[in-house]
Design a protein around this nucleic acid. Sequence first.
RNA 1: GCUCGAGUGGCGGAAUUGGUAGACGCGCUGGAUUCAAAAUCCAGUUCUUUCGGGAGUGUGGGUUCGAUUCCCACCUCGAGUACCA
Length: 991
Amino acid sequence: MQFVMRISNHFLRMNGKRLQKQNKKQILLQYRLTFLSDTEVNWCPALGTVLANDEIVNGVSERGGHPVVRKKMTQWSMRISAYAQRLLDGLSTIDWPQPLKDSQTNWIGKSVGAMVTFEVLSPALSEGKGEKSDSKRTPGYMTGGNNSYLLLEKAKEMRANPTPAEAILWKYLKGKKLKSKFRQQHLINDFIVDFVCLSKKLIIEVDGKIHDYQLEKDEARTLELEQKSGFKVIRFKNEEVIGDIDAVLSKIDSELSNQAFLLSKLEEKKVDNNHKQANVTVSLSSGKGLRDRISVFTTRPDTIFGVSFMTLAPEHELVAKITTDAQKAAVDAYINATAKRSERDRMADVKTISGAFTGAYAIHPFTGIKIPIWIGDYVLANYGTGAVMAVPCGDQRDYDFAKHFDIEIPNIFENVDISEAAHTDKEGTVIANSDFLSGLSYKKALKLAIFELEKMGAGYGKINYRLRDAVFSRQRYWGEPFPVYYKDGMPQMIDAKHLPIVLPEVEKYLPTEDGKPPLGNATEWAWDSRANKVVSNDKLKNKTVYPLELNTMPGWAGSSWYFNRYMDSNNEGEFAGKEALDYWKDVDLYIGGSEHATGHLLYARFWQKFLFDKGIVPVDEFAKKLINQGMILGTSAFVNLLRVLVKDSVGNETKETLLITDDWRMILSSAKLMSDQNYNKALLEFDKVMKLEVQKHFALDKNGARFIDLIKYNIDEITRIHADVSFVNASNELNVEAFKNWRNEYNSLIPVEEGGKIKVSREVEKMSKSKYNVVNPDQICEEYGADSLRLFEMFLGPLEQAKPWKTSGISGVSSFLKKLWKLYFNGENFEVSDAAPTKDELKTLHKTIKKVEEDIENFSFNTSVSTFMIAVNELTVLKCNKRAILEPLAILVSPYAPHIAEELWSLLGHKESIAKADFPIFEETHLVESSKTYPVSFNGKMRFTMDLSLDLSKEEIEKAVMAHEKTIAQLAGREPKKVIIVPGKIINIVG
RNA sequence: GCUCGAGUGGCGGAAUUGGUAGACGCGCUGGAUUCAAAAUCCAGUUCUUUCGGGAGUGUGGGUUCGAUUCCCACCUCGAGUACCA
């Protein structure tokens, strides 16, 4: 967890010395693998903890089904996003199921595209508020904006590859030749300017051809640099520099002296203003300006000329700032309306198109055209930048939005009709009406667009990942404690040599009254940084004692590395010894459920890569092969309950609950499907039956007050609840008494059904205590034995397949085991012969060895079981009791039915366990045949078979087949067109 | 919507470098044994049939001497994911 990523070193080099130690740490913390951050988290009030995305199912907690809300909290997080690409790449190196790999790929969600910056042209509404001076002080020459680190490389590259004109001018500017220091290809905010004299605030741009078509854009850029940052921008054409350098230099010289004069004037003014106003509105040194920018991520920069509007998420931070007074009411109303809708509602309702115009405009980076800025909830605040450049002709959502609000839909595709829908295909698409991109294919246009955006500093190629950093704090007691204490509010790591620290004793495992995690209840939870141990909270007064972290780690902390611990589980000194790790390396076969695809299995891969980077483990993937075993599902039983109001003869009204057979639910729902008439008829019948049954019930159960009428019920309020499957028989009939006694509140249920039988409905679901569908294998073990159960589970079907638990076939494997046993016995007596086995017996044995070997390789255990059945059936027919056959057979069976195999092994006279016996060796010679039963097909349909020697040539086979009486009958006199003979396989006659 | 997977008897399922579809088991039917039952054993069991055959692996096409297997389109079910720009 001390891991510091590369970016932080870079960061430190840049800013390190100027930052105070405290700030430095705080910032550094932002770049660690594990870091504290204020994140919006899934808070579950009922559990008092934060949940990870994969712990929430359908908006409620996976555990317990409690509601979950969004909430801002300071949490430890892990920067899994830094490993996104490597987690993606690693997938091709491991033998995991394709669906699982696919779901990890989707979860990581890589999209390749570009970041494009649009400037906002709106009147700045923040005017007059003033700019707060930036607390972050950077070197004077570092005039780059927030994205500098991204542009820096670009600037370097441009410096290394100047245009001829640039090279010439630089020769005369460098080394203070004009008495002022110039820099070339320098970052100012998010622009790279050709040359700049920082002291005189003068920018020199040398324009090549590219600027001809972007005059407007250049104007915008000039405007920004001049107004916002107080620079003067002068421009020269390439030809001017190359043709008349002296004129250019003299112009620069005069501009320099001009600037010097202006700057001194401004300085005076500034000193003046400082008396009245803390901050000036137009500050020369301010990092932030009057203009705002909207960055968007797009996978289709090639369609940039098709942009006709922009859409921001309603939550986008710029919305309030750029909205014009005229549009404010509409925008506010829209934001209020969307805020009321939950995230789920918003996602569920894709069809309704809604949005509002902010009144502001952005400038297109290439054309300089004004682009209206809208807000709309189809743009998600937490993906990308929360803003999109809308290309209605190429994106269906943008298209729908544009149609709905009557926004222009320019077509930038060649020979494509967009009157009905957007054109979203990429392949084969040719770009049109797009200036320098026109006529290019999608791929070429994409590359060129990025290239040009980068050149002018309005964008850059970017890969975006959907994968979010993982929250690593839990407000629970049971979890590994963090080795962290807080000194002056800053987290400090406890050195590894003082670990482990152990969970403290607490009175109760619940959150504290003031909402702190359960560890807040501990009295012995402070860190003595001198003695390096956990001490009582009383000592917090001492200068060297600090409070410890109260959060604990989530379940995936342990599950992300335990397999490495298994390699050296008794190691007291470290998590696993190097020798053991190098020996075992990784997990050969990991069997686990696919439900862990985007949780545990992704986190564990992430940790393994990190541990690998640190040199702790020798491989960067933890499991070579992974199989998703299918889950054995339960068959849940449901009963139907209906609340009714009942009135008795005295006039008392009581609320009762009816227990309704599932037949009624079926009748009503099918009647509803047919017609209203049918439904009404069914309802009447239902009503009649219920009244009768309720009447009967009260007549029997309650003396005194007699039932008069059923007053009120709502047929739509029949609730279906799980009943314990043990109350239900094979015909789906409920044991009503057992169900009523199950819980107190069911004691007074009134069963409604003529004949007193209540049927349940059944559904296959995951086995779960809360669904009361768990079956216990103990009973089967008792009746058939553990080997039968084990064998039966394997025999059910392929390992990867999920299936409901049904015991109907168990007698098959049970009788197989009995037959197996009988091979070794003569009546009551164990009797095995030492005689030499026959050819047929050897054939059966070796066929079995071969198949079982293959099946084990393929994890196809169900077919192994059937192979054993075949072998035992054959040996029974052969009356085989030869040791030479039965000994290897017992070994083959032993992994599948270990108890019976062990017993037989011991009867065969062995003292050591069968588990230690060598696996039988397959010998091909026993399977070699001299003849083959050929299938004879006519036009590919098998009609009969005939035995032929394998020594025969094709010609001889054909001769034999054609002479066969059935062949003659089939052909009925016709001449065959062709005869296909594959020796040892098939004969096919075409004709 | 997108991505992936799967569709074979009454049921679980078998067979894929293209080569006898339905292995093995359950269930069912008939028989033997038994006073009877359990257990065990034997025979049959894809559908259809005029008993010669004919049809058949979700549907429709294609490639091939030959397709459950390969290709295209569609349908249904399941899983994952979802206004991802």
